[in-house]
Each structure stands twice: as C-alpha cells, then as structure tokens.
Design a protein around this nucleic acid. Structure first.
Length: 532
RNA sequence: GCGGGCGUAGUUCAAUGGUAGAACGGAAGCCUUCCAAGCUUCACACGUGGGUUCGAUUCCCAUCGCCCGCUCCA
C-alpha cells in the first residue's frame, strides 16, 4: 500500500509518542483495548499543563467564571432530560450486497451506491435489520443488576453544570452573566475510534457554560441589544449590559482562539467554521467550530455553541425544580417600560418559550399556558438564562500540540556534519519539561555538585530535568525530542575558570541551538516569564 | 459494526517449517571542556489462543490491536 505523506507523519508522531513516553496504548501488555490511550510521564505533564492553563485562563483570571467538579456517574434522569438516552443512538442498517452502511431513518432518501436511480430502501441489496446502539457506556449502581439500577458514564461534562446551576448561583455570589467551568473525563462508546487519540472512547473535556440574559431581558434593562458589528470594535469592553447572545457568542469565539494562539497553535493552523443553519443541533442557535489542521485532515478541537435556554429548560421540566433566576434589576426596568415595549418583549419571549415546548412534544394548549406563565415572569424579574458553551477536547488538543510541535531539521554534529534532528517545538508554557540542567562532564564532581545545586534552586518553580549521562550533545538531542525549550549547562567557567564568568551558565535554546551566558542568580527571573 | 491491508526487541527493519539478527535507542562503566563522538559490558521481540505437523515466528482458523475506506463526534 502506498502510504501518504500525512500517514507517514502520523506514524512518526505515534512512534515518537511511545518512544519518549507521551502516549501509550492502554492495556498494551494484554493486546490493547480499542479507543483507549494512556499518557506516559511526558504526556501527563503536557496534559496537566494544558488543563491548568485552561483552568487558569477561564476561571482564576476572571471575575465572572467559577469552577465545578462533578461526578462521572449521575442520576440517569439527567440523560433523559438532556436527550442522550433517546437521541444519542442511531439505528443503523448495513447492506450486505453493496457493503454500505446507512442510518435506518434515512434509507428512503439516500440513493443506493450501486443503483443510484433507486433509494436504499427500495434497492434489492440484502440488508441487516436496524441495529440501535447507544453511545453511552452503561453500568449498574449498587449490587443488584436490574433495570432500576442502570446508570451511565457521562458522555459529556456539560450536563452536571446545568444540574448544579442553582446551587452554584446561590453559593458563589455570582449573577448572570457568569460562567461555570469544568474539566473532566467523559465516555462515548464510539462506533469507530480513529486517528490515534483523536477519537477515543474515554476522553477529557474542558467545558464552560456561560449563562447570559435572554435578548428580551437585555433589551428590557439596557434598552437595546448591541449588534455584533459593534462588538467587533469594542472587544476590550467585556460584557456590556447591552450584549445579547450573539455578542457573547462572538466574544467567546475570540477568547478561545486567543487561548489556542497563546499556547503555541499559530492562527494559520486554526480554522473558524461557522456551522450552517441546517448543520446545527436542534438545541443550538449558532455554533462555531474551531478546527485544527491535523496530518489526517482539518478536524474539530472545540465547539462554541449558543444553546439558548434549552438545557436549563429541560432540567426544569424533568426535575420539576425551577431553573430560572430572579433579578430585581429586571423587575424595576420592566415596570418603567412603556406598555407597547412590554407587550413586544413579552410576545417575543412567549413565542420562543412556546416554540421550544412544542418542539419537545408538549401539547399545543399546555405549551401556550406554560409559555404565558414564563413570559409573565419577566414582569416579576424572572427568566431562564441562555447559555454559550465553549467545549473543548483535551486529548485532541494534546494531539494538535504534538502534531504542531513536531519538526525535523538539520543540525550539525560534533564534526560539523549535518544530521537530521527531531524536535518538538512546544510553547514553553505547555512544554512537559521547562528546563534541563546538565553538568558538562559527569566525571568532575565539582560540575555535578554545582549542577545539582542549580537544579534544586529551580525545582520549586518548574519541572526541571537533571541529566549527566553521556556526551553533552546527546543530552541536548534527548531534550529536543522531549520538547524541552531550555537547557542549562554548567561548565568550568561556572566554577570560576575565567573569574569574570564565575557563577554563570550556558542557556541553550531548543529551536535554533543558540547559546547565551546567564548568571545563576538571574535564571529564575529569566525563565519564569517565558513559561507562564 | 462492515470491507481491505498489516502485526518480529523501545523504535525502524531483516531472516527462517528445526524456537531469531542488525541499526538506532536504553542501562552500567571508562573516557569526554558545548550539539546523538569513542571503547567495554548488559538487558529487551516473533500480539494472543487454537489447529495442521515429529517440530510453527513461518501454513490454516479464531481473537485482539494498528492503518485505510463507510459512519460519528469533544
């Protein structure tokens, strides 16, 4: 089989990941298990760095986002409300004649691959009966394994945020607009895990649910809803009272792209894809995918969806607990609005609520009654928040970072002969090892002792790697493959061979091999801004 | 799940119906005054399970895994 250039590159990456301890196959000694991957020592550091950067950016550096860490197994009711129990499964039919596979509900609209004049449902190919498979992993809670004990491993982290929305609202002293962030494992029994870790059955997500006022409420309070064109010109002003869902959506798209650029993915490798109306999930008003150009294609890293008030509404209906918020500000503003304005906003809110309820199968009459009740709430300062959801896959991002960092270049060896060098050009912020400390020679105890002292001085602040084995060049190359941005070498000048250079070291840069001389005392101040 | 291809040290590759070699890498030691240097020593593999056979890494079957297509998503 002729192998494509992309495929060769992926194989090199997979091989490097194993060789250097970034990623191993799960359960490898037992032959592996499809769709599961483990992170080795360097991978674990890389992943931790990425998650901490996300967490820091999304919560600690902001006033308006707080964190949550929920369980993986939750009440199965959650997945009924979210729709995952019913819609997270696609009945499929295989055709034994033409080897095609089709969604059972679409056979009447897909042309037969062999006889395009006929639809799949009417061609003569021998077909299997429809087989439904739910993509959620099932388990049982408690010792008795009957239907009443069925529970699911969460297929996304988002639902826990919705389920705990009221608790967080009441205990965090936040008010809308604000967000709840969560990082954690999710599980999907994918039909076909593929492309290394890109589509795994166990994976990790970094999700933010950012709760905002519905546009009707924004308009009631601020008098207007800002157009997205205006937002583009005032990016620095975060969260003006007149921001509607479109402004917030656009804002988060910008924020997320900036995040990716900040950890070393160049803008040129990223694609911002606005989903077309017909591609949107039923609950979404808009969705932007941030794609990365992997060796195997341009694929999704993150989706930023404007999910309306769908999720909170679903949980309100299924749990019977109110999910709305009350704001004095809205009540006051509402009562000062002219009657015709009140009526117009009331009508819009009513129509949206009713549309949602009818779509979810609520009888017309009941829907009208409930929507009326909801719209009447506006005058009392009550509404159900809408949500903007930036949802990113950690493992995909790790793979993107590795693929982006992978490069081969020519570097002269000891004798000046050019040799191919494999180097992972990680941004220092995500690099698993920030700095390697190397005594020039191992068999000179003074060098070793000094190097260990430098290591110990830096260790509390960053991940430091000490290595004294073999020639210095070999150690540099090893660090290149690990993606270590900086190497510190302790030599005889450090010890004072040239008195003016005493207590200085060589700082060697990964990407170009250039070196500079730095005083030991200034190392920390030199390094810290680069790795944070 | 369906169809096609592929499974030999950590990696990349050899060879063979009579139980396997290399290179690089790894470990230990010597040496080494800045980019995979040199010398010595060591460890490590036929994915798993059946079958055929006197004997299977080699042939057959199954299974697991990887890659490519269909399909799906973070």
């Amino acid at each position: 089989m002729a192998e494509s250039k992309e495929n060769v590159l992926m194989e090199k990456i997979v091989s490097l990941c194993k060789r250097r301890g970034f990623i191993y196959q799960s359960s490898e000694i037992y032959g592996g298990i499809n769709g599961f991957w483990d992170y080795g020592p360097l991978g674990a550091e890389l992943k931790r760095n990425v998650k901490e950067l996300w967490w820091n950016t999304m919560t600690r550096q902001r006033d308006d986002v707080v964190g949550l860490e929920a369980t993986i197994i939750m009440s199965p009711q959650i997945w009924k409300a979210s729709g995952h129990v019913d819609t997270f499964s696609d009945p499929m039919i295989d055709c034994k004649t033409c080897k095609g596979r089709f969604r059972a509900d679409q056979t009447h609209e897909i042309p037969c691959p062999q006889k395009p004049s006929k639809m799949v449902s009417e061609c003569h190919g021998e077909k299997t009966p429809p087989r439904a498979f739910n993509l959620m992993f099932q388990t049982y809670v408690g010792p008795v394994q009957d239907d009443s004990a069925i529970a699911y491993l969460r297929p996304e982290t988002a639902q826990a945020i919705f389920a705990q929305f009221k608790n967080v609202l009441e205990t965090s002293r936040q008010k809308v607009p604000f967000g709840i962030a969560q990082v954690g494992k999710a599980f999907r029994n994918e039909v076909t895990p593929r492309n290394f870790t890109f589509r795994s059955r166990e994976f990790e997500q970094m999700e933010l649910e950012f709760f905002i006022k519905p546009d009707e409420v924004v308009e009631a309070i601020a008098g207007r809803v800002a157009s997205t064109a205006e937002i583009g010109n005032r990016k620095s002003e975060i969260g003006n009272p007149d921001w509607g869902w479109e402004a917030w959506h656009k804002y988060w798209v910008e924020q997320r792209i900036a995040f990716y650029e900040g950890i070393g993915l160049p803008r040129t490798t990223l694609v911002e894809y606005w989903q077309k109306p017909e591609e949107l999930a039923h609950y979404a008003r808009a969705c932007v995918d941030i794609l990365f150009t992997f060796p195997f294609g341009t694929q999704e890293l993150e989706g930023i969806a404007a999910r309306s008030d769908f999720d909170l509404s679903q949980h309100e209906r299924f749990s019977g607990k109110p999910m709305g918020v009350f704001e004095e500000e809205l009540r006051t503003a509402w009562n000062q609005l002219p009657k015709e304005k009140q009526d117009a906003l009331w009508r819009r809110y009513y129509e949206n609520r009713k549309k949602y309820l009818v779509k979810m199968g609520v009888a017309e009459e009941t829907a009208a009654r409930d929507a009326t009740e909801d719209a009447n709430g506006l005058a009392k300062g009550q509404y159900i928040p809408h949500v903007i959801e930036p949802s990113a896959g950690v493992d995909r991002l790790i793979l993107a970072l590795i693929a982006n960092a992978y490069s081969e270049d020519q570097m002269p060896d000891e004798k000046g002969k050019p040799e191919t060098r494999v180097v992972l050009k990680f941004h220092p912020r995500v690099a698993p090892i920030k700095v390697a400390v190397l005594p020039l020679l191992k068999n000179k105890p003074e060098l070793v002792k000094k190097a260990q002292a430098v290591r110990d001085q830096l260790r509390p602040w960053m991940n430091v790697f000490y290595d004294d084995a073999g020639a210095i060049g070999r150690r540099y190359r090893r660090q290149d493959e690990a993606g270590t941005p900086f190497c510190i070498t302790i030599d005889f000048d450090t010890l004072g061979e040239k008195p003016e250079l005493q207590d200085t070291v060589t700082m060697r840069h990964r990407d170009d091999g250039k070196q500079e001389r730095l005083a030991i005392g200034e190392l920390l101040n030199w390094l810290l801004p680069k790795i944070r």
